[in-house]
């Protein structure tokens, strides 16, 4: 067993885990943070995207041990004082989801994009979502939601 410790959504978490524990298992099974989804488990779909030290990554392809000492943000950490993050609010407003399975990963990817590029073009948004697959929406409303959130966040 291995002792890992990280800061998740501002709170410290320390646990003993098997070395082969994936970060997404650590989040979902050890900490009960089931907002992060597992779609493919093969690094393709992006349902499991979380932020590790400020960058979006696929938590199904990272060992909890590799994230030891890191700052993690998951979908559960976006809302502040009960108020949705502008990207979450825009997904709701613009119907950026249907079944909602891909949504946590989509939102986490989009939040990372807007942190790095406050005014992305439609092409830049679509290219950034290369690693996030949605079987329902056809992406148009996801792109629309991200554009709206970008406008909102620029104020």
């Amino acid at each position: 067993m291995l002792r890992v410790s990280m800061t998740i959504n501002g709170k410290q978490a320390t646990k003993e885990v098997e070395p082969r524990t994936l970060l997404v298992q650590f989040l979902r099974e050890h900490l009960g943070l089931t907002g992060t989804h597992v779609g493919c488990d093969t690094s393709q779909c992006g349902a499991c995207v979380v932020h590790v030290n400020g960058n979006s990554v696929k938590s199904c392809t990272l060992l909890a041990a590799q994230a030891d000492g890191a700052e993690i943000t998951t979908i559960e950490g976006l809302a502040q004082n009960g108020e949705m993050h502008p990207v979450q609010a825009a997904f709701r407003e613009h119907h950026g989801l249907q079944c909602g399975f891909c949504t946590p990963g989509m939102v986490m990817s989009a939040v990372d994009l807007l942190k790095k590029n406050a005014s992305p073009s439609e092409t830049e948004i679509r290219e950034w979502l290369e690693g996030n697959i949605c079987r329902c929406t056809g992406y148009h409303n996801i792109v629309k939601a991200i554009q709206a959130a970008a406008n909102e966040m620029r104020g």
Binding site: S56, V57, L62, W128, N132
Partner: peptide
Amino acid sequence: IGDPQVRHR
């Protein structure tokens, strides 16, 4: 290469 999340790791 790949996608942003692959490029981050």
